[in-house]
Computed example of a mutant assay.
Amino acid sequence: MEALIAVVLMSLTAHIPSHRKPRRSASKIALRAGVAGGVLSTLAVAGASAPASAAEPVTETIEMPTITADLSTQVAESAYATQEAANSWALQAEQDQAIAKAAKQAKADQADAQQKAEAKKKAEAEAQRKAEEARASRSAQRTTLATVSAAANVSAPASGSVASVIAFLKAQLGDAYVMGGTGPNSWDCSGLTQAAFRQAGVSLPRVSQDQSTAGTPVSLSNLQVGDLLYWGAAGSAYHVGVYIGNGQYLDAANPSKGVVIQDLSGYPATGAVRLL
């Protein structure tokens, strides 16, 4: 009886090359289980007298797939790649946002700079316009004063005029020099010459610049007593005095000297005008 059971079991497993049984479909397993069950039932009836302990249950092990190390590594690498891609996208988004913000700020700065440049240009144009108006006004005033002076020079008496001018000047010798002084005991250079020529009926402008263009220009080699000397360019002279002959002139020199007589050789004049 045991030999017969062994033969049946061997016939059922003869097609399996190894001790590990391959996976089988559910239908084949059911069919073979039915055959084996029928055979075993027959054997059980035929050998009912055999001991119960001689029969052994037939079992079948179905192996489940396992996760290999390679598959685990691939899963980890795929997760890492996905995270890297997410990080890259987030970084790109931040960079795009920063670029957009910088472009917006640059545009605002450019507009502000352009507005300031236009305001500066307008201010410069306005300042230039005012300066031109001021120059035109000063030029008109000088022309008027020169005309008045010329008319006064023409109407001034011819006799005794120079003598009265020189006499007045010499009477002020030793007086102090004071900027803006017009007498009677302190003078600046143009204040003294204005007062002196007033004695001869000549009305001179108040400042040196205008006095230097008030009469008829004469060369320094053809000076006469009573000619007005000036230092600096005509129209922008910074000092005046009166020629008194013998290479000398009288002026309100400076705070240390006061009203004095000096030699032209020591301080040559730039030009001269004749008022009498």
Rank of each mutant, 00 (worst) to 15 (best):
Ala195Met: 12
Ile67Ser: 09
Leu40Arg: 11
Ala102Met: 08
Ile261Trp: 05
Asn222Arg: 08
Ala171Met: 07
Pro255Ser: 14
Tyr177Cys: 05
Thr270Glu: 03
Ala69Thr: 15
Ala252Val: 04
Pro57Met: 01
Thr73Cys: 01
Gln172Glu: 04
Met10Cys: 06
Lys257Asn: 09
Leu276Gln: 11
Ala125Trp: 00
Gly241Thr: 02
Ala156Asn: 04
Gln114Ser: 13
Tyr177Asn: 03
Thr193Leu: 11
Glu60His: 10
Thr270Asn: 09
Ala253Glu: 04
Ser88Phe: 07
Leu169Phe: 04
Gln199Cys: 09
Leu40Gly: 08
Lys257Asp: 05
Arg32Thr: 09
Pro184Asn: 10
Asn87Pro: 00
Thr216Ile: 10
Glu126Phe: 00
Ser190Gly: 05
Gln83Asp: 12
Lys257Phe: 01
Gly174Asp: 08
Lys104Cys: 00
Thr68Lys: 05
Thr216Ala: 10
Ile99Asn: 11
Arg129Phe: 08
Val75Ile: 15
Gln105Glu: 14
Gly181Tyr: 04
Ala140Gln: 12
Ser41Tyr: 07
Thr59Leu: 13
Glu84Gln: 15
Asp227His: 02
Ala136Val: 13
Val7His: 11
Gln92Asn: 13
Pro17Ser: 11
Pro184Gln: 09
Ala237Thr: 07
Gln74Asn: 11
Leu4His: 07
Val207Asp: 14
Gln74Pro: 00
Trp231Ile: 02
Leu173Cys: 00
Lys107Met: 07
Ala152Met: 13
Pro205Gln: 06
Thr42Pro: 00
Thr61Gln: 12
Ala106Cys: 03
Ser155Met: 15
Leu275Gln: 05
Asn254Gln: 03
Ala127His: 00
Ile244Asp: 01
Ser164Thr: 12
Asp112Gly: 01
Asn87His: 04
Ala253Arg: 08
Ala163Val: 08
Phe168Met: 03
Ala272Ser: 14
Glu84Ala: 14
Lys104Phe: 03
Thr143Asn: 14
Asn246His: 04
Lys130Pro: 00
Gly174Tyr: 10
Ser219Trp: 04
Ala98Asp: 10
Thr66Lys: 10
Leu71Lys: 11
Trp89Leu: 11
Ser159Thr: 15
Asn246Tyr: 03
Leu43Pro: 02
Ser155Asn: 13
Phe197Arg: 04
Ala106Arg: 11
Val58Gln: 11
Glu132Cys: 02
Thr143Leu: 12
Ala69Glu: 15
Ile67Phe: 05
Arg32Glu: 15
Val35Asp: 12
Gly34Val: 06
Gly247His: 02
Ala237Lys: 07
Leu220Val: 08
Arg198Asn: 12
Ser137Ile: 12
Ala100Asp: 14
Arg24Ile: 14
Ser186His: 05
